[in-house]
Design a protein around this nucleic acid. Structure first.
Lengths: 205, 205
DNA sequence: GCATTCTAGCTTGTATACAAGATTCGCCCA
DNA sequence: TGGGCGAATCTTGTATACAAGCTAGAATGC
């Protein structure tokens, strides 16, 4: 999951059981168990007797994943009656780390933190079940973004996170929801453009 | 998942690899793969060298699962701008089946359908990703209900589903959200009572 | 009669062996 | 020179063997 979130592994990449076993120093049995778990969370798929591949979401699947995030994250925000000051502090700290990674040009860490922020948000708001779900969804979103959105604006995402926290801290949950919605809509817009292109272009690899 | 949803398997039950293998006519290897997947979805846990067990959620875990459902289901409803008449029809049909199972006293089918309704709802509203997430969450909810809520009122749940569909069909999404919220709050209330009892009673089982 | 220790059996953890299918590269032929 | 066929090689699918640890029950001591 971390390798995908930090952009070290991307869509369509083949993951050989033997290779992975050698990398981690374990036998194929354990690699297989891990892949099985990743496949049940929709991060990899297996092609019989060919190998394991990181998912390559279609436009429709991508849209469903983003819409699922919208439901989960908007629902998460609306559920909060009040937010612990401690949670706000933790989130601000996380954003500061994001900014640091951006400034230092640490690409892998930057990607990881920007994606992981949403997982951390659920965790800070006190729900680790939702955090687990969001880890799955944001990981897939990163893959989608890499496939369909050639250049992600890291600074813009980071600023959005900051505005989100501000709204939450001030108790303006409708505004927080609005920011979240706008963020996801922006992601989805790129998808629509690409979907149109693909229809006419047909072959893309 | 189906065995849990229909109440044939309940919390704490041990699932031996050898036994399951004999039941399904496969070797331990495949049983193990399946258990690994179930464990990554939080339905079973493994106790080293002792076996696989259906989860026994603590009160805190139960609360988190119900809150996760609240976020997901409320988010799902709020996301809908308009609802396809076809979806309403499908859902009404599903509720009719629920009523039939209740009237016929088919306990297993009744439990299965009542839990599965929420999965079906996400599917009917066009998001299979959310449907998958809800399958996990409702399955766990069934286990929670069996643990903490001795008698579930099937007819009441079914009526709630009916009212939910009516509200949706009339385009009153706020009312739909309210019904959903009330349903989950009712579930959670029982938890609180039980939590209190457990604190004083200590040993239960 | 009760508690404790030890052993035998059973269950999972992990690796490995072998089978089945996919891929690739060389070879042959047009 | 290009396309098609075939065998060698590689990869996953599945079962099985053996190791490690837990459990339960018998035997023993008090």
């Amino acid at each position: 999951m971390q390798a995908v979130l930090s952009g070290q592994i991307s869509s369509g990449e083949r993951l050989g059981e033997k290779d992975l076993g050698e990398i981690f120093g374990v036998s194929r049995t354990r690699v297989r168990e891990a892949m099985m778990r990743l496949s049940s969370r929709g991060i990899v798929v297996v092609s019989p007797r060919r190998g394991w591949f990181v998912i390559e979401p279609t436009v429709e699947e991508a849209r469903e994943t983003i819409e699922a995030r919208r439901a989960v994250e908007v629902g998460l925000l609306l559920m909060q009656k009040s937010i612990r000051p401690e949670a706000i502090r933790q989130l601000e700290e996380h954003v500061a780390e994001q900014q640091k990674a951006i400034d230092e040009g640490d690409f892998a860490r930057r990607s990881y933190l920007l994606g992981h922020f949403h997982v951390y948000l659920a965790e800070a708001l006190g729900n680790s079940v939702l955090a687990g779900i969001l880890e799955e969804l944001t990981t897939r979103t990163v893959l989608i973004a890499a496939l369909y959105q050639p250049t992600e604006d890291a600074q813009h995402s980071c600023d959005n996170h900051r505005r989100l926290i501000s709204a939450m801290a001030a108790g303006h949950m409708e505004k927080a929801v609005q920011i979240m919605n706008a963020h996801l809509t922006r992601l989805e817009k790129v998808l629509n453009v690409r979907a149109g292109k693909k229809k006419s272009g047909q072959a893309e690899k």
